[in-house]
Design a binder for these strands. Sequence first.
DNA 1: CAATGAGGTCACTAGGTCAA
DNA 2: TTGACCTAGTGACCTCATTG
Lengths: 167, 167
Amino acid sequence: MVDTRRATWSVLSFGLEMWEQAETHDKVNGFEMKTQSGLDYCHLPSLERCHIPVNDDPVSLPQPGDYGVVHRSRPFPQSKLPTYTDPNSLLNIDCRVCGDMSTGFHYGVHACEGCKGFFHRTLRLKLAYDPCDLNCRIQKNNRNKCQYCRFQKCLLVGMSHDGEYCT
Amino acid sequence: MVDTRRATWSVLSFGLEMWEQAETHDKVNGFEMKTQSGLDYCHLPSLERCHIPVNDDPVSLPQPGDYGVVHRSRPFPQSKLPTYTDPNSLLNIDCRVCGDMSTGFHYGVHACEGCKGFFHRTLRLKLAYDPCDLNCRIQKNNRNKCQYCRFQKCLLVGMSHDGEYCT
DNA sequence: CAATGAGGTCACTAGGTCAA
DNA sequence: TTGACCTAGTGACCTCATTG
């Protein structure tokens, strides 16, 4: 599955270009927000190599309420962010990548343990996945089917290694 | 990450040595100017030991009457509260270590809460970090990537435990 | 008093581990 | 390879001693 050649891609030039093209900044209630602009992410491909549904819904970029990329902790004092160690306090926040339950704000976005670990491993081991241009829809039940598109989705929703500002 | 051997360095002898190797200063109108090398450090995928850019801009050492870098307008919108005691009283002074917003004069220099806490912990627990000779550039975005260079920077800009009170 | 900074607290996440 | 779980380190916020 994994091409163990070390990857030569750069998250920088790859993921974030799209990201930055699409973003505008807003400030609401003192919290910086990123508003989405219509990012065209739906080029409808034909189903070939990948067996999971094509992603036909535009990925929504971080929204107000996502806490943006600014706040790593305590975005709202009264409501705790979900933490792994306190499962009962988890808000029902979805993983931005696959829709599973987020366990916190990981690499700049709300993400589940799986996508967090996946993103981390990909970077740490500099993994390169078999390219896929099908723009597979990544969901909880199929997220392991296409690593390439999963990682794309990670980048698209804004995961980054240092999730604060990206100047 | 942290080498839990207790460190054997001495802040004094160590810090001041570097200190005295004073480098060039870029000062314009009494305000220190930061040179931007035009690199985007975010999203660099490598997670290895030292992965953040080498510090190629000379650290300007503190001057008598140095109040740090004053920005009329902040480069990035800051939603953080400047200080807990009096949010409005703070000028936009940058942390001498990482460039984040300073929350006051800590350990002899203007520093943010993060660098203040980092320096404090390092001393209190006598932490020794994995050596790094890359002279990593410490910035808000990447300050947690290389503890060694962060601490070096703390020393370099003049943080010391016997600053103001409690001598 | 008010203002300030040292030091403490603890919610939170990055990164590691390892059974599946 | 994945992801549930673990832990060390971080930093926003707090208290309190000190200073003026």
